[in-house]
Design a binder for these strands. Structure first.
Length: 843
RNA sequence: GCCGAAGUGGUGGAAUGGCAUACACGACGGUCUCAAAAACCGUUAGGUUCACGCCUGUGAGGGUUCGACUCCCUCCUUCGGCACCA
């Protein structure tokens, strides 16, 4: 039996005599044991409560960084804790293996992206393994394998069947560096999410998924996510962006109708011009044969050439041109000019607005610049406002004026009344507009899932039949990196037969956005080897939802929105029973160094591998968990690592100093009764506190600190006392309480304490209130809000008794000299607050 | 501009209406040692006092309360997200 205390050879700075433990030996030993015994293999057991804990699976870059370490450590602690609580835990891992980095690496090194990815996965697995994570490796998956992406194609075809996958020509976001299109969610601050290059617009024929069909459900579903961070909910809510308003119909001279969306129908009488987005389909009709034609066309080209970033920048001046055409305001028959301007966006609302310069700041600035008319239609209460005095638009609510029959109403009333009136007179229609756009999924890249579509000259767009799946991504493809879908150059792939008419046809050569792969992988983990379906419905019924999901905030509106969309779609398809995939969400904070994000360019990266070599995985885990709460940012510091290491050594020494485990029970120490109680009481208190911290939101840092307190308590004992039965009981509790955080060393200590099984087969220690209960409580005594003394009182003491005790206290008496007591507040078990005023009777 | 989060010792952080600064890091002092390291013990918000103490103190200011880091109002600062959304 291993009982020895080894001197670490890797850490020169802390080599003591029998002070340290050999983490290298211990970690390797237990990782091997766990693997061989398949300790973390999971299977559905209908009679057992399940717990599905999942961390956002990694992109296999080949190396893990501190962000990964933190993310997966948090998940691992939760998984191990739930195991100890008797749950049937599912804790899988896989790789989000399609994507551009592999393709770029392939271009650079002239290798195959598949080979590169597999090598990265292997390297990464070794690193993950060294951290001691409790993954069920039998469920490992990689999205780049045909057995996985076949089901991406299957889901796509189901969507196509339901009209939720469609192709359309439109203006799309284009990254000039990645040479591919981007979804709206992938444009971050006007730049590409991957390389930050300013995104430009391009008119292309592309595939979309109709996520907007689920706008309402995606929005209302947010209310059911009680255990998601407020921040993420808000971000999704804003992203979906529901606004209520009215669509108003303006007649044009040529008989066409221009639809305009507004959230302020109460200002319609103040509309003095209308503005179209430069891309608006009516613009070109309106200017035909007008003197303005040439100028407007020039302006449209100019806007089209601008990057999105340049167009929507804060300080960019709004520019526009008069089209020469007019529209009729339906409420008063007024003929108002139609302009084209860059501040109106085609992708929102109807791509056209009614401009009310007096009550919209953007319209105000634009009208001033271009000498357009203005009319006040809303005034602040009890105040007159005049156009001549206005220095900015009045955007608040107010009283309607110059608005015909609606004069005198408040804007809130007016909004409702005008909407009703317009509907009645067919001038417009109450409507809702969304900010959310359909999800553009075509990518002009190689390393992704082929879109299972065939183009036939006779039959048109034909889906690949289900039985012909997967459409396998061809290997050995020459990727130039010069743009254009690489699959387009693979003759054997492109040329195919039409599934309908058997004539020659062509395959779609774009691949799917990789966010599609990750939109349902959590379902695949329920039955990862299923060959008949994306996942087994019964298995999913047992394991889903993910009880605890953990990942970075950067996916607040990308992955987390798409996954919700897919789950809702699969529910409608009858594949899954729930509408929301993730019950609880924890967004872990970033790992910083000197207050800055770790990055190659800043040269401030701390490599987990080096830290593991120097301190071991347990110490690294402990430091990361102890240094900050999981949601908060964590500033890396090396001395903190030493602290974590020292603590583990302190615990280790207590265990290592015990005589051979077999003799322990006989070796009753000689504890004084008072001491005896103190250790046992502290143990029960600690178990209670740690349990509460784990249950009430995973407050690992405070859980660990309370375990430290218990350890400190043991160090206050004499050496013989440290070997007493009571101390050993406390040590056993410590080992189990610490096990989720530092699993290897706890396995070893559990073994040293005579444990025959893995510590994770044990159950979480329980506490007994009877041991925690105090006979006496210390009451704080405040006089006029300041702490002046303390008294001890029995737990059972009545308020009256406590009051008398407080008033009898000599220090309190001193403070009450010359003033008279007005009121005494007793908070049972806590404090007495005495309110007193000067006795001189002035008041 | 809008939305969100945060602001506490030299540092990371704890306390969500009841003793502010648990736990840890760092620093200082001590024990052990020829010495150092390690380990162990102690001190460590500021001011004031020989001392017991007392006063001040959780970004700023105000309010509610017997009592506020905690709740409310008005600001300031930092970070994050969104941003011509009609």
């Amino acid at each position: 039996m291993y009982l020895g205390v080894h001197v670490s050879t890797d850490r020169k700075s802390l080599t003591g005599k029998t002070m340290e433990f050999d983490f290298k030996h211990i970690e390797e030993k237990w990782q091997k044991v766990w693997r061989e015994r398949k300790l973390y293999r999971s299977q559905s057991l209908p009679d057992k409560r399940k717990y599905y804990v999942l961390e956002m699976f990694p992109y296999p870059s080949g190396r893990i960084h501190m962000g990964h370490v933190r993310n997966y450590t948090i998940g691992d602690v939760i998984a191990r804790y739930k195991m100890l609580r008797g749950f049937n835990v599912l804790h899988p891992v896989g790789f989000d293996a399609f994507g551009q980095p592999a393709e770029n690496a392939a271009i650079k090194n002239n290798t195959d992206p598949g080979k590169w990815t597999c090598e990265c996965i292997d390297r990464m697995k070794k690193e993950l393994f060294r951290m001691g994570f409790s993954y069920d490796w039998d469920r490992e998956l990689a999205t780049c394998l045909p057995e996985y992406y076949k089901w991406n194609q299957w889901i796509f075809l189901k969507m196509f069947e339901k009209g939720l996958a469609y192709k359309k020509a439109s203006y799309v976001n284009w990254c000039p560096s990645c040479l591919t299109t981007l979804a709206n969610e992938e444009v971050i601050g006007g730049g590409c999410w991957r390389c930050s290059t300013p995104v430009v617009e391009k008119e292309l024929d592309q595939w979309y998924l109709k996520i907007t069909a689920y706008s309402d459900k995606l929005l209302s579903g947010l209310d059911t996510l009680k255990n998601w961070p407020e921040r993420v909910l808000t971000m999704q809510k804003n992203w979906i962006g529901k606004s209520y308003g009215v669509e108003i119909y303006f007649k044009l001279e040529n008989g066409e109708v221009l639809r305009v969306f507004t959230t302020r129908p109460d200002t319609i009488f103040g509309a003095t011009y209308v503005v179209l987005a430069p891309e608006h389909p009516l613009v070109k009709q309106l200017i035909v044969n007008k003197p303005q034609e040439k100028e407007v066309l020039g302006f449209i080209d100019k806007v089209a050439a601008e990057s999105k970033l340049a167009r929507v920048g804060t300080d960019v001046k709004k520019e526009g041109k008069f089209t020469g055409a007019y529209a009729i305001n339906p409420v008063n028959g007024e003929k108002i000019p139609i302009w084209v301007a860059d501040y109106v966006l085609m992708e929102y609302g109807t791509g056209a607005i009614m401009a009310v310069p007096t009550h919209d700041q953007r319209d105000f600035l634009f009208a001033k610049e271009n000498n357009l008319p203005m009319r006040v239609v809303i005034t602040p209460k009890d105040k007159e406002s005049r156009v001549e005095d206005m220095v900015e638009a009045y955007e608040d609510e107010g009283i309607m004026v110059n608005s015909g029959a609606f004069n005198g109403y408040t804007s809130a009333e007016g909004k409702k009344k005008i909407a009703l009136w317009m509907e009645e007179k067919l001038m417009g229609k109450a409507s809702v507009h969304w900010r959310l756009r359909d999800w553009l999924i075509s990518r002009q890249r190689y390393w992704g899932t082929p879109i299972p579509i065939i183009y036939c000259d006779s039959c048109g767009v034909v889906p690949v039949p289900e039985e012909a799946l997967p459409v396998v991504l061809p290997k050995n493809v020459k990727i130039s990196g010069e743009g254009g879908s690489p699959l387009g150059k693979v003759k054997s792939f492109v040329e195919t037969q039409c599934p309908k008419c058997r004539k020659k046809a062509r395959r779609e050569t774009d691949t799917m956005a990789t966010f599609l792969d990750s939109s349902w992988y959590f379902l695949r983990f329920c039955s990862p080897r299923d060959t008949k379906a994306p996942f087994d419905i019964e298995e999913a019924k047992y394991w889903m939802p993910v009880d605890q999901y953990i990942g970075g905030i950067e996916h607040a509106v990308l992955h987390l929105l798409y996954s919700r969309f897919f789950t809702k779609f699969l529910k409608d398809l009858g594949q899954v029973h729930l509408a929301e995939p993730f019950d609880r969400l924890l967004t872990q904070g970033m790992v910083l160094k000197d207050g800055e994000v770790m990055s190659k360019s800043k040269g401030n990266i701390v490599d987990p591998d080096e830290i593991i070599k120097k301190y071991g995985a347990d110490t690294l885990r402990l430091f990361i968990l102890f240094a900050a709460p999981p949601e908060a940012e964590l500033d890396w510091n090396d001395t903190g690592m030493d602290g974590a290491w020292r603590f583990l050594c302190r615990v280790w020494r207590l265990v290592a100093a015990l005589p051979h485990t077999g003799a322990l029970r006989k070796d009753k120490g000689q504890l004084l009764p008072g001491r005896h109680c103190a250790v046992i009481k502290k143990m029960h208190k600690t178990i209670k506190k740690v349990t509460q911290d784990m249950e009430g939101g995973f407050k690992f840092n405070t859980a660990i600190s309370s375990i430290m307190e218990l350890v400190n308590e043991l160090y206050r004992l004499s050496e013989p006392e440290q070997k007493s039965e009571e101390a050993v009981d406390a040590l056993r509790a410590i080992v189990t309480l610490l096990a989720p955080f530092v699993p290897h060393v706890c396995e070893e200590m559990n073994h040293m304490l005579g444990g025959k099984e893995s510590v994770f087969k044990a159950s979480w220690p329980s506490f007994d209130e009877a041991f925690i209960k105090e006979d006496e409580v210390s009451y704080v005594i405040q006089v006029n809000g300041k702490v002046r003394s303390k008294v001890n009182a029995g737990v059972e003491a009545s308020e009256e008794e406590v009051k008398l005790l407080a008033l009898g206290d000599p220090k309190v008496k001193e403070w009450l000299k010359g003033i008279s007591v007005k009121k005494i507040i007793v908070v049972p078990g806590k404090l007495v607050s005495i309110v007193a005023v000067p006795a001189s009777g002035r008041g």
